[in-house]
Amino acid sequence: MEEATYRGTVYPWQCDHVGHMNIMWYVGKFDEANWNLFARLGLTPGYLRDAGRGMAAVQQNISYKRELLAGDIVEIRSRLLEIRDRSIRFQHEMHNAATDEIAASCEITAVHRDRNARKSVLFADAIRTAAMAQLAPSAPAPAMA
């Protein structure tokens, strides 16, 4: 399921010396989308604090497609690609809300962690169930010739 997980604006102070949004702000906006996606799965700040859990990104790949300028409205849409016992893989697409063009995409693998033991742990059943319900449909198999 692909839903908006972030909406915001590019501010002039987020732009570099050539007038484009600087790459550090792409990463920051993707990070904000992470927390909205996680909350939909039950990985809320309250759960993470109370259970002594955390999420750690172990791989992040970003593709930049179109520049964003000061004043542009940004929307990030996210989809869960995979859930495993202790990790999830998901994708964000950052759109220019006025044109719906994709400005950047980001695929992240994150691990569910016990903050005290400092090691990966299984997802709770409720989180797994919520994630399974939100998994994006698989890409169609290539046609055979």
Rank of each mutant, 00 (worst) to 15 (best):
Ala97Pro: 01
Ala131Met: 10
Arg118Met: 09
Glu101Cys: 03
Leu43Gln: 05
Ser120Val: 06
Glu107Asp: 10
Met24Ile: 06
Pro142Leu: 13
Asp125Thr: 09
His20Trp: 03
Glu75Lys: 07
Gln91Thr: 07
Ser105Tyr: 00
Leu37Gly: 02
Glu82Ile: 00
Arg86Phe: 00
Tyr64Trp: 10
Leu41Glu: 05
Val121Pro: 05
Gly42Met: 05
Ala139Gln: 10
Asn116Ile: 06
Gly8Trp: 06
Arg53Pro: 01
Ala98Pro: 06
Gly71Ser: 12
Glu3Cys: 06
Gln60Gly: 05
Val111Trp: 04
Thr129Val: 12
Met24Gly: 09
Arg7Gln: 14
Asp114Val: 02
Leu80Ala: 04
Asp50Met: 10
Leu43Glu: 09
Tyr11Val: 00
Leu43Asp: 11
Arg7Val: 14
Ala141Trp: 02
Gln59Cys: 03
Cys106Ala: 09
Ser138Val: 05
Asn61Gln: 14
Glu107Ser: 13
Glu107Gly: 03
Leu48Asp: 10
Cys106Phe: 02
Val10Cys: 12
Phe123Met: 09
Ala117Lys: 13
Ile83Asn: 06
Tyr6Pro: 05
His112Ala: 04
Phe123Arg: 03
Val111Glu: 11
Gln14Cys: 06
Glu67Pro: 07
Ala103Asp: 10
Ser78Ile: 02
Arg118Asp: 12
Glu107Trp: 02
Ala57Gln: 14
Ser63Met: 08
Cys15Ala: 09
Asp85Ala: 15
Leu37Ser: 04
Trp13Val: 00
Gln60Asp: 03
Arg86Leu: 06
Leu37Val: 05
Pro142Lys: 14
Ile127Asn: 07
Met55Arg: 11
Ala98Cys: 07
Ser138Gly: 12
Phe123Lys: 03
Arg40Pro: 04
Thr9Gln: 10
Pro45Glu: 15
Tyr26Leu: 11
Asn96Gly: 05
Thr109Pro: 06
Ala104Thr: 02
Asn34Cys: 15
Asp31Trp: 00
Ala133Gln: 14
Asp50Gln: 15
